[in-house]
Amino acid sequence: MKQKFDIITSTCVPLPLENVDTDQIIPARFMKATTREEKFFGDNLFHDWRYKADGSFNQDFVLNNPIYGGQILVAGKNFGSGSSREHAAWAIAGYGFRVVISSFFADIHKNNELNNFVLPVVVSESFLKELFDCIAANPSMLVEVNLPLQTVTNKATGKSERFEINAYKKHCLMNGLDDIDFLIENKQKIEEYEAENCRFAR
């Protein structure tokens, strides 16, 4: 059972870059762990942008800037492209983010976030741009993400947008359930399918 998701109101960490791929979210050399060590992955989130080659902090990177913080990451379009590594979602969750807002997500990464109870919120380009502007003007401004109502609100402007999520996944997030719970309760249906479909020698 995972942490249930309801309403989150938080400050944001802005990452106004496009096409942030999962190799940047967590470089491959940190994927050698054999357990779900979320803290380890979180500590290495955006590793090569966050740390210099000598291991010291890169003060220019947003995660190292103390004026930004919170449970919401706001990123440019096409977030999470490239590799399917779920380690990227573990790193985001391990760091403490519970929501990622962008105007566009790559498919596999979006699923990985959902399967780790991190909510990907798709907003319009104009909403995203205004959000980046508002955060730049006031890093302590708040955003409310309301899963039951499927709304995201920029508290600085009061503007809201509705975001999409299918009813099944919403139910899972709000109740801390995952897909495996669902699938293993459906074994009989799977066996019936197999009995009717023997296209390949199994």
Partner: peptide
């Protein structure tokens, strides 16, 4: 797919 989906 992701690792949670591999588990599925």
């Amino acid at each position: 797919i992701g690792t949670s989906e591999v588990e599925m």
